Amino acid sequence: MAFVIFNLLCVAALIGADQAIKAWAVSVLQPVGAMPLIPHVVELRFVLNQGMAFSLLSGKQLFLIIATSAALLLVAYWLFFRSRNNRLQQAALILVLGGGIGNLIDRVLNGEVVDYINVLFMRFAVFNFADICVCVGVALWVLVIFLEELHEDSAKEQ
């Protein structure tokens, strides 16, 4: 039971942080449009994104909501039923679930996602905290899979 409560609290904390930052972006950043964070490196720029990464599937809200919901249900299943003995996998799934739900809330309530981090030193999409959570979580999950395969291969050799 403590495992489930801990996971739920972690996911809720990520969702809360994401929604709080987005509320700040709407109230403070939207009126000014943009402001420097680290001059010539990163700025905070208010953008509404109707699609997913790089505005792909823009305008396909119902599809994005259904696909995201289905993917998040699978992630939740893995988190609560398959990651009990692997803390790195647990962290990865918490990040994916928290970030995914954060963006899903925007998409369901507003039909678009609030983005606000703009990298200036290269051409890249404007993104948000939830996107960072999902990307870091997926990268960690890939690492977990790689390490498990490496462990299985070394176990077979012995």
Rank of each mutant, 00 (worst) to 15 (best):
M1D: 14
F3Q: 13
F3M: 10
I5S: 15
I5E: 13
F6R: 15
N7S: 15
L8Q: 11
L8D: 11
V11L: 07
L14A: 03
L14P: 03
L14R: 00
A17F: 10
A17S: 12
D18V: 11
D18F: 06
D18G: 09
Q19G: 07
A20G: 06
A20Q: 11
I21P: 00
I21V: 13
I21H: 02
A23M: 12
A23W: 15
A23N: 11
A25Y: 01
V26C: 07
V28P: 02
L29Q: 10
Q30P: 06
P31E: 07
P31C: 05
P31M: 02
L37V: 10
P39R: 05
H40L: 02
V42W: 03
V42G: 09
E43Y: 06
R45G: 02
R45C: 12
N49G: 05
G51T: 12
F54K: 08
L56V: 13
G59H: 10
K60H: 12
I66N: 05
T68A: 10
L72V: 11
L74R: 01
V75H: 00
A76V: 09
Y77N: 08
Y77R: 09
W78K: 03
W78F: 15
L79D: 04
R82D: 08
R82A: 12
R82E: 10
R82C: 12
S83C: 06
N85E: 14
N86P: 06
R87V: 09
R87N: 06
R87F: 11
L88K: 13
L88D: 08
Q90F: 00
L93S: 04
L93P: 02
I94V: 15
L97D: 04
G98I: 06
G99T: 05
G100R: 01
I101F: 05
I101V: 15
L104C: 04
I105W: 04
I105E: 00
L109A: 14
V113E: 00
V114C: 03
D115Q: 07
Y116F: 15
N118M: 01
N118V: 05
V119G: 08
V119S: 09
L120V: 03
L120G: 02
F121E: 07
M122C: 10
M122R: 14
A125K: 05
F127M: 01
F127A: 03
F129H: 00
D131P: 09
D131C: 13
I132K: 04
C133Y: 00
V136N: 00
V136T: 10
A139S: 13
A139V: 11
A139I: 14
L140P: 07
W141Q: 05
W141P: 01
V142Y: 03
L143A: 14
I145N: 05
I145R: 08
L147T: 11
L147Y: 05
L147M: 13
E149R: 13
L150K: 15
H151D: 13
E152Q: 14
A155T: 09
A155E: 13
K156Y: 08
